[in-house]
Design a binder for these strands. Structure first.
Lengths: 248, 248
DNA sequence: CCAAAAGTGTTCGCAATACACCCATGT
DNA sequence: ACATGGGTGTATTGCGAACACTTTTGG
């Protein structure tokens, strides 16, 4: 607390209000961690990788890796996403969640990680990326939050924050359509909401709500054939404005 | 995009899904930057420091500094706040805004900064901290956003993000009371809203709105004498629940 | 008594909810 | 005909905006 005790501070004589002395700093490792989320059936799932070596051997961890020397944080997130899952950034929506840097969060070294949420359309099974045989799996968020799974580092915290952020952005942001394929029915969109919020929503009211929201979704003109048991064919929609920015 | 081209990557042979190889990483400088915000009169203000040396000599910058080796990010923010402004963390509300790490954002070196918003009760003049004579000033956010002031690094972006976040948290979070002293009238609280949102709010409706919100404010029992021109005396309030967590 | 500021009541319109109802299809 | 799912109409309710009104003070 007191700025006069200078125990473990390497080269930092005193505070510099004009910024800092660029020659004297303690180096950190900076990584990005990806919270890849998708909705399968009635469950929100997150991609985790089971660790095969210490620390936290056997525990589940978020995919991630080092930020490269000449790379922006968002670019690093996109690259790690592609490398570790095979999903190119244009198939996912990335949003920064925040930075996590508690000392000791990685027992090996001082690491600050910047967490990114990645929203992708229904993945039925965990993608295999990078050409390695690590055990990646799409895990229900409920299993994480009920402590049925042991998560490495502070990744439980990061997942909790990601889910909270996702819920809060559902009604205001454009995140929800990211869980749907390029063309989708309102039923699919509603099931995304229901999986994330863990509630049942009234179909009719939901239709009005999302169609009224300006610039949120727009009809493609197409329709989709009903299922085996009949029913009126559903309208197809895409994210964003009719000719607006997005799917062009 | 292809993991086989390894051009500018120093010691990173291939992606490691189990996390990363702790021996091979590129070191970053990690700093915290503080967006100290306060409401003075009808204006939202932010604390900036005029730089006396290159780069960005003469431009205005956010206070901030390096994260220490054994320090959490939030602790670093609290320490920098105290060192550079003399404001102890218990007088301010700190909230993490996000990480900024574009390559080249600091021409001297690769720096990732974690920005923190700090909300404090009315500061009439810029606090002087740290024992140095740097020129610190409380600047109207309007002056920043109208480009009347030149900001260093990507600090304009950070200020914009901070203000946007502040506005969005006004209606849901507890930020607003942070701009008020420990005991305050609803008029003071309303003036905070008006300064931040740049609107006029109906007094009567505002009273109902904030008093109805659960756990937001509670009466202290005290009243305050009216001004020179008379008027009914106002009730005094404090943040949080009656005996709840906060002011005790 | 009048002005000023705090706080309450009253009305109106909008938006969310509940739910009935019609539409288009398969069997 | 009937079941099934898509979509609209309608009544109710709760909340916020606008604003009139009451309360409590100073001059």
């Amino acid at each position: 607390m007191n700025k006069n005790d200078s125990l473990a501070e390497p080269h930092r004589p005193e505070p510099r209000p004009e910024g800092y002395d660029p020659r004297s700093f303690t180096p950190f490792a900076v990584t990005v961690d990806i919270v890849l989320m998708t909705v399968v059936g009635h469950a929100l799932k997150v991609l985790l990788i089971q660790r095969g070596q210490p620390p936290y051997e056997g525990a589940w961890a978020l995919p991630g890796g080092f930020v490269q020397p000449e790379e922006d944080l968002a670019d690093a997130a996109a690259r790690e996403l592609a490398e570790e899952t095979g999903i190119e950034a244009d198939r996912a929506r990335l949003l920064q969640l925040g930075a996590y840097g508690r000392p000791g969060r990685d027992p090996r070294m001082r690491v600050v990680t910047v967490a990114y949420g990645a929203v992708v359309a229904r993945l039925e099974q965990a993608p295999r990326g990078g050409g390695d045989a690590a055990h990646a799996e799409l895990v229900a968020v409920a299993d994480v939050q009920s402590d049925r799974l042991r998560l490495a580092f502070d990744h439980r915290l990061i997942v909790d924050d990601a889910v909270a952020r996702l819920r809060s952005e559902l009604d205001t942001g454009d995140v929800a359509t990211g869980f749907c394929p390029p063309e989708f029915t309102i039923r699919e969109l509603r099931e995304v909401y229901e999986a994330i919020l863990q509630t049942e929503l009234d179909s009719g009211n939901f239709i009005r709500k999302v169609t009224r929201r300006d610039g949120f979704i727009s009809p493609t003109g197409g329709r989709v054939a009903p299922g085996d048991r009949g029913g009126r064919p559903a309208t197809l929609w895409r994210a964003g404005d009719p000719e607006g920015p997005g799917e062009g």
